[in-house]
Amino acid sequence: MIEISTSPATTTLVIAGDLDLAERDQFPEIAARVVGLRRQLLVIDMCRVTFMDSTGAAFLISLADSGRKRGGATVLRGCDDRDLFVLEVCGALDLFRIDVDHRCDPPAGAGAS
């Protein structure tokens, strides 16, 4: 699931679940919506991503590349090391700013006894 929210200068994508080949059918519509919003900053929240393959990485890369061509920036937050590795292997890590200060909220029910 991918949710889109906006502020005057920022578009935020919150991604939950798998970001992979099985989800690719929704990528073109989401990309078109994000590009159409024409915000300078795209924040991609990956706190709830459970798996990302090269198809998901290509989707993120296309979003970052579109923003960069318009003079914008793309920030990844909540990315785990595995996801960063996939982007690095694709040679695209430099397209993104990595939010190293962001801390994801614990999953619902975590820590409850």
Results as ranks from 00 to 15, higher is better:
M1K: 07
M1Y: 03
M1I: 04
I2E: 14
E3N: 12
E3L: 12
I4K: 12
I4E: 11
T6Q: 13
T6C: 11
T6E: 14
S7Q: 15
S7E: 15
S7P: 08
S7M: 12
P8K: 02
A9N: 10
A9K: 11
V14T: 15
A16C: 02
G17E: 05
D18H: 11
D20N: 15
L21C: 08
A22F: 02
A22I: 08
D25E: 12
D25I: 07
D25T: 10
F27Q: 08
F27W: 12
P28V: 00
P28I: 00
I30M: 09
A31R: 13
V34D: 03
V34Y: 04
V34T: 14
V35K: 04
V35Q: 08
V35G: 03
G36N: 04
G36M: 08
L37D: 09
L37Q: 13
R39G: 03
R39S: 05
Q40W: 04
L41W: 05
L41D: 12
V43M: 06
I44F: 00
I44Q: 01
I44K: 03
I44C: 05
D45R: 10
D45W: 07
D45Q: 09
R48D: 15
V49Y: 03
T55R: 01
T55P: 02
G56C: 07
A57W: 00
A57G: 14
A57K: 00
A57L: 02
A58Q: 07
A58P: 00
F59D: 00
L63Q: 07
A64K: 05
A64V: 06
S66N: 08
S66P: 00
G67T: 06
G67N: 13
K69Q: 08
R70A: 12
R70E: 11
G71R: 11
A73F: 05
V75H: 03
V75N: 02
L76N: 11
L76S: 14
R77W: 04
G78I: 09
D81Y: 02
D81P: 01
D83K: 10
L84C: 14
F85N: 14
F85A: 13
F85S: 13
V86S: 03
L87T: 08
L87A: 09
L87F: 02
A92W: 11
L93E: 08
D94P: 01
D94I: 00
F96Y: 07
F96T: 13
F96R: 06
I98H: 05
D99Q: 13
V100S: 15
V100C: 15
R103K: 14
R103T: 08
C104W: 01
P106H: 02
P106D: 06
P107M: 05
P107T: 01
P107V: 01
A110G: 02
A110K: 05
G111F: 09
G111M: 13
G111T: 11
A112H: 04
A112E: 07
S113K: 12
S113H: 13
